[in-house]
């Protein structure tokens, strides 16, 4: 088992950096996770931020976390081509110990906007996902992983997610970021026990764990249901720290535990102090676990025979359905409007299985899509 490193999600944001700085001054931060594609269009990155990235890169303690690739878009997009080219360029400037992306497809026609939502688990989506992961791995030339999604439409999807991730990652020998707050959302939203859900994930594929905070939202579609959302704008709940303590020992190849929080949740001095306390609590848990772990791991998470498919996998029907779903979620004025539009759409009685979607999660999907619509 490798030594586990305590890390922060650290990006070019005044409030995030302000919260991280005392931890860095105390030499507490052992690695940083950088959302590299958030800066793809920034013409001039400050030299001090590049120096910070280089310092961690030189020690093989820099990990990349992409946001905008839209892994399961049914159509291959020019923006994805550009994204890969920029990743290749960034990977020559910095040495990533690994690179990760999010599961799902981005809502909205404009590639760089929207939020990732789930897709049907079919042979078509499996083929597309595997194709994209091979291209990402070829661009960055390091281990590649995916993060489990917080959002699911149904309990059925929740139960299938781990196995689908496993199948998806196999050709690139990839790994999973197990986001424990995402898991916490599903434990609550679908009332499934932790032991049941965690047993459905291939935990020998977990190389990184995320912890973060979120928020509660009342459901109008299914009162008095409260939906847990992964908004990254609050402190880490005690329950997520408990999940961390219970999960680490189950993951033999875990290397990074990362604390994430959005800059908009770190504006006040109190929130910065809370972030630092959360980090120290996380670090203490990691240190305790490290004390009883051996230091050897033979899992490289690199593909034995890396290949790029000659033809780009696409699915025109899937792409049309993704656009249709995005439009419904982004424009429906009410939950009832959304349900009616879904029932009369091409998604009805299809692999999307909209008939099984939980009402309060359709409502949540609308809120997410409309929040991030541009």
């Amino acid at each position: 088992m490798p030594k586990i490193l305590s890390a922060v999600a650290c990006n070019l944001d005044v409030d995030i950096l302000g919260a991280c700085l005392p931890l860095m001054e105390a030499s507490k931060v052992e690695a940083i996770e950088w959302s590299f594609d958030a800066l793809f269009k920034v013409k001039e990155i400050p030299s001090w931020f590049l120096e910070l990235l280089t310092a961690f890169s030189d020690e093989q303690r820099l990990i990349g976390h992409g946001v905008f690739f839209s892994l399961f878009s049914g159509k291959w997009l020019q923006e994805q081509e550009d994204w890969l080219r920029q990743l290749e360029h960034t990977s020559t400037a910095f040495r990533f110990d690994h690179v990760t992306e999010h599961f799902g497809f981005m809502t909205g026609k404009d590639f760089h906007h929207g939020a990732p939502l789930n897709i049907p688990y079919t042979n078509a989506t499996l083929t597309i996902g595997r194709d994209r992961l091979r291209r990402i791995q070829a661009a960055c030339q390091c281990p590649v992983g995916l993060e489990n999604l917080a959002f699911s439409y149904s309990l059925e999807e929740v139960k299938q997610h781990g196995a689908f991730l496993d199948e998806l990652l196999a050709p690139v020998n990839g790994f999973i970021i197990l986001d424990l707050h995402n898991l916490y959302c599903q434990l609550h939203n679908f009332e499934i026990p932790f032991d049941t859900l965690i047993s459905l994930y291939p935990l020998d594929k977990v190389r990184e764990i995320h912890i973060s905070g979120g928020s509660w939202e009342d459901s109008l579609a299914a009162p008095p249901k409260k939906v847990r959302r992964d908004t990254h704008d609050d402190a880490v709940p005690d329950a997520v720290f408990e999940l961390l303590e219970n999960t680490i020992d189950l993951c033999p190849h875990l290397k990074y535990v990362v604390l994430e929080q959005l800059g908009n949740g770190l504006i006040t001095a109190e929130s910065k102090t809370q972030f630092q306390q959360d980090f120290l609590r996380m670090e203490a848990i990691v240190a305790e676990k490290n004390a009883t772990r051996s230091t050897e791991s033979i899992q490289s998470f690199l593909p034995a025979h890396p290949t790029i498919p000659a033809h780009i996998a696409e699915d025109a029907t899937l792409y049309r359905q993704q656009l249709e779903l995005s439009a419904i979620l982004e424009t429906a004025a009410t939950y009832n409007d959304a349900v009616h539009a879904l029932q009369t759409s091409s998604l009805a009685h299809s692999d999307w299985r909209i008939e099984t979607w939980a009402p309060y999660m359709i409502e949540t999907a609308m809120k997410i899509a409309q929040k991030w619509k541009k």
């Binding site: 950096l17 700085l21 860095m24």
Partner: peptide, 16 residues
């Protein structure tokens, strides 16, 4: 991980 004092100072300056 230990960062150099000059880098930490540059970050402090950089984030105002």
């Amino acid at each position: 991980m230990k960062l150099s004092k000059s880098l930490l100072s540059a970050i402090v300056l950089g984030i105002g």
